[in-house]
Design a protein around this nucleic acid. Structure first.
Lengths: 198, 198
DNA sequence: AGCTTACGCTACGCTACGGTATCGTATCGC
DNA sequence: GCGATACGATACCGTAGCGTAGCGTAAGCT
């Protein structure tokens, strides 16, 4: 499960192979960001990366495999950040990070194509799920902690709550395309907290 | 603004032209639904519709124009439905209709490609916006009415509220892909109402 | 009926891309 | 240094799709 880019895949590997793989994946990710899933072509990657097409086919047996790996390579690691002791601060922190990730991060432009592709490709769908699970795990923890401390109603459905919290952020990014400010996040969190009081 | 499919475009038009246009747009919409935006090709439409490729080019000067019209032709009309007098009933009705539209309607599979395409194509983006404005106008009305009646806090930001309501529905459809039940919608609405009490 | 016009059909040329084969060369491990 | 091997370059073949041209035919209008 080690990221094929950051970690040098395997220790006893020919450095030439590692270099090629990394270069190709970088170019593929760049194309993915700039032109969407349809823009990721073998020839385009070859031209952009300087790695010969034949070499690409030596490492990936098909285009879809490569696209898959490109997606995977750009899943950013989640920095274990401390958002403070209060539930409100934690939720605001998590949602603000999500919001920044969806709008300002380098992989932000890849989100819509990823969602589109996930609707048709089961493998990619799983990848997206995994990505989200990691992202939202901290949110789930924060909610569970608050419920245990009695700061939230005990009968709260955590999955629904996550949808209520993250949904508006995704909605603004993907659907309404209104600006995603910290004030908006704070408003969403405050509404949620008002509704979730025990 | 008349839909090019349902309404016979213009009265004094050669019926052969009207037929061709309608047939082509139907096929384009079908391809859009089945294979996403990338699947809408002139040749594919020609084959599927039985309309000759040359004829298609007689009516649309470029592929993107045709894709645009195909999108437009499938924007369903919003039936002016009555959801009863209570705010809760209205919101549940609107969100359930949205939820059904996003998952069960014929155009449901076209939503992710539409969102993806809208991220890159400004014209399509406007189309999506127009679609949403129509959809959400009734929601906005319901909220304004409730605020006027004193059922909601006066200082509620309507745009934020719409995001809080519609966001979770889109989130389940596009991101988490959890099932979209009426119970979920009711839970979202109830949480919103608890948080918006005056 | 006769004229107009839209249509279907076939055939093109062009580009982009997928995927494979061959061969000479550069790089790596030992 | 030397053999193994990964790489780059080029040349292919096949497919899909865009967009155009020319021509015969059929449908519509009057």
């Amino acid at each position: 499960m080690a990221g094929p880019l950051s970690a040098p895949t395997e220790p006893g590997l020919d450095p030439r192979v590692a270099r090629s793989r990394a270069t190709v994946l970088r170019a593929a990710a760049a194309l993915l960001i700039e032109q969407g899933a349809a823009g990721v072509t073998i020839e385009g990657i070859a031209e952009r990366s300087g790695v010969a097409k034949t070499t690409i086919y030596r490492h990936w047996k098909s285009r879809s495999q490569l696209v898959f790996d490109a997606f995977e390579s750009m899943l950013p690691s989640m920095p274990a950040q401390d958002y403070g002791p209060t539930l409100r601060g934690q939720l605001c922190g998590i949602l603000n990070q999500l919001s920044r990730g969806l709008t300002q991060s380098e992989w932000a432009p890849a989100v819509p194509p990823l969602i589109d592709a996930g609707d048709r490709d089961p493998e990619l769908r799983q990848l997206v799920q995994a990505f989200l699970v990691v992202r939202m795990e901290r949110c789930r923890e924060a909610l569970r902690g608050a419920m245990a401390r009695g700061e939230l109603r005990r009968d709260l459905d955590v999955d629904v709550a996550i949808g209520v919290l993250a949904g508006p952020v995704f909605y603004r990014r993907l659907v309404s395309r209104e600006p995603l400010s910290e004030a908006f996040v704070a408003e969403v969190v405050d509404q949620f907290l008002r509704s979730g009081a025990p």
